[in-house]
Amino acid sequence: MQMLTMQTGAALASRSDWTVLRPLLAQSVVQTLQMVLVTIVIGGALGLVLGVILYGTRPGNLFENRVVYRILDILVNIIRPIPFIIFLAAMQPLTIKVVGTSIGTTAAIFPMVVMCTFATSRLVEQNLVPVDHGVIEAARAMGASKLTIIRTVLIPEALAPLILAYAFLFIGVLDMSAMAGYIGGGGLGNFAIAYGYQKFDQTVTWTAVIIMIVLVQVVQAIANAIAKRLLRR
């Protein structure tokens, strides 16, 4: 249905015919927000867990385990550098098995969540490493369990930089959602390509670009305000 709507719009839309383009733009914004928010929530949560495990299993940390850390470290290093457009193609067989299709917004969300999980895990690990070990050792000396230390000491101590890291992650996920247009995922990326680039209409293309810029600015401003407030405590 989604693809039929976009195809019908492509057939009807003429250069800068905003009577037709306006509802398509609104639909694209909704699709982008859907892909980004679902990916951030699920991939961000899974990435936080994986990042904590990466940090905790590092030599000298709470759950020190060189074998587990090395395996996870290699896995993250393998997946993170893959360009997302290639990752989409590589994940297609698994996406079909899990989602039932390789076309559409839902099919785009699955590989986005997988990539986001691994990207987030490294960001989380990097922001946990600078936490003062003295604070952690003090909590351990007071008899706090390892999970309690993670929940009440480690993550709160790194909360401000973690929030900024997730704001940075939002930009990456938004970029992934734009590339998802190549598999019929819809969104602003597909709108800019189908009704802007392919029709040589810079107005349409820049409308999509400006909306993306506004989304990034809003999220970054909110993250900066929250991080600033946390650092003052």
Rank of each mutant, 00 (worst) to 15 (best):
V98I: 15
T117M: 10
R122E: 08
A107T: 08
V49P: 05
L75Q: 00
I96H: 13
L88T: 07
A138T: 12
L12W: 11
N77F: 11
A90D: 09
Y197S: 07
G43T: 05
I103V: 15
F170Y: 02
D201H: 02
N224F: 04
R140E: 15
G47L: 05
V209C: 08
M179L: 15
A227K: 04
Q202D: 08
F87W: 07
I74V: 15
V113Q: 09
N190F: 10
I79L: 14
L94V: 15
I213T: 14
V41S: 07
A138V: 09
M6T: 05
P156H: 04
R233G: 14
N190S: 13
R151A: 14
V38A: 12
L123G: 08
N61F: 11
N224K: 12
G60C: 10
W18N: 11
I171S: 05
Y69T: 00
V29W: 09
I82P: 06
T39G: 01
G196P: 04
L231D: 13
G43M: 07
L94K: 09
A10Y: 13
A180D: 06
M112R: 05
A160I: 03
V29L: 14
V36N: 01
A144T: 08
L37W: 06
V38R: 04
L50P: 10
I171R: 01
T19A: 14
G189F: 05
I53P: 09
S145M: 02
G47S: 03
P111F: 09
G181P: 03
A158S: 10
S16I: 02
D201V: 04
T39N: 01
E137W: 07
